[in-house]
């Protein structure tokens, strides 16, 4: 006898359940134990099982077990997969191209051109010799230990993903700041993206795309890293001094003029803080994405774990830290320059 027989008996569903509960096979551990110890053991009320799907299945074989739920989800996903692919595939194809091109360019440009170029970028953004020096030391070190190519691959992926995040995230953030309803819808989605373990994104993506396509890891990185730039764009625009907005209104600005001439420039420090966070998070995700064929330093980390090559793991981990420091310092310096020109 199962604990919850009375529910189905009480509801008059015994016929729907089919035959009596007892011939459903020995599906539960308790029954199995009861069998081995010989004869029915009186179950004390203390051990009443939670009315879970499995427990109810014991009482009524027609009631689905929980593993049927998970396999049902899987079947459902597989069923819509093909039609989903028809829509998503062309939409995301440019991401594959961008990633492929970026990877090719970063590797094709010789190091003696690339490192000065990166120095130039660091200078243009931060105007600090100190940071340019940091760039030289870090890339010099990574090149010296023969990780130059891996570093460039990682940098290419981050570049493409961060740019995509900004291109998508800033407009979404603006939409959220202008409509409370959009904000109410978006906040739970952003919360979910932020808290869902990154590995979980990978599973449906693997079903959807082939592992050889770069967009597979591209999408995973973007989904994970887009959250801060969206949030901080929304926050930044909402925090713009209402007095200044009123002045803009009082001088007859249109909504569009207000957005581009007042709100976005004044929200820029917050938006840039979001971009900084987005870059940091895509760097974190790049390692996980190497599980699904993303090239770069993550592959080395993975190799370190898989074959217990401690040295490789540590050195590539250090490489990622160095990259993170450079990206963080350079974007923060850019942020500081914006802040100085606006501080009130």
């Amino acid at each position: 006898m199962a604990t919850y027989d009375f529910i189905f008996d009480g509801l008059g569903l015994r016929n729907w359940c089919g035959s009596s509960a007892d011939d459903g096979g020995m599906t539960s551990m308790a029954q199995l134990l009861a069998q081995t110890s010989g004869g029915d053991v009186e179950v004390s009320p203390w051990e009443t099982p939670f009315p879970s799907m499995d427990a109810l299945h014991d009482a009524c074989p027609s009631f689905p077990q929980s593993r049927e739920l998970t396999s049902g989800l899987e079947q459902g996903f597989l069923a819509i997969k093909d039609s989903l692919k028809v829509v998503v595939d062309p939409l995301t194809q440019p991401l594959s191209w961008a990633l492929n091109e970026a990877l090719w360019v970063m590797q094709a440009v010789p190091w003696f051109v690339m490192i000065p170029l990166l120095m130039l970028v660091a200078w243009a953004v931060s105007r600090q010799m100190k940071l340019v020096g940091l760039v030289v030391i870090c890339f010099g070190f990574l090149g010296f230990v023969d990780y130059y190519t891996y570093t460039m691959q990682t940098l290419a992926i981050i570049f493409v993903c961060a740019v995509t995040c900004v291109l998508l995230g800033v407009p979404i953030g603006i939409a959220m700041s202008r409509s409370d309803r959009v904000q109410r819808i978006m906040i739970p989605i952003l919360d979910m993206l932020q808290t869902l373990p990154p590995f979980v994104y990978l599973i449906p993506l693997i079903f959807l795309f082939s592992v050889t396509e770069p967009k597979l890891y591209g999408i995973a990185i973007i989904l994970y890293a887009i959250v801060p730039v969206v949030r901080l764009t929304d926050l930044g625009i909402r925090l713009v001094d209402p007095d200044v907005i009123e002045a803009a209104d009082a001088f007859g600005m249109t909504k569009r003029q207000k957005l581009f001439n007042v709100q976005i420039p004044l929200a820029l420090p917050n938006i840039m803080a979001g971009v900084n966070q987005t870059i940091m998070m895509s760097l974190a995700m790049v390692v996980i994405a190497s599980l699904v064929s993303a090239p770069g330093l993550g592959v080395l980390v993975l190799r370190g774990i898989r074959s217990l090559e401690l040295g490789v793991g540590l050195l590539s981990g250090l490489g990622i830290v160095l990259l993170a420091i450079i990206l963080d310092r350079v974007t923060k310096a850019a942020l500081a320059r914006i802040n100085v020109s606006q501080s009130r």
């Binding site: 007095d243 009123e246 002045a247 803009a248 009082a250 007859g252 001439n261 004044l266």
Partner: peptide, 30 residues
């Protein structure tokens, strides 16, 4: 908007200047 641009202008208690624009650009807001 025409009225606000050409007929009426406003001065605010907390100044409400655009902090990212120069004084000249602020003066030329209208």
């Amino acid at each position: 908007r025409e009225l606000r641009k050409h007929t009426m202008s406003m001065v605010f208690q907390k100044f409400a200047l655009l902090p990212h624009r120069t004084v000249l650009q602020n003066a030329g807001l209208a």
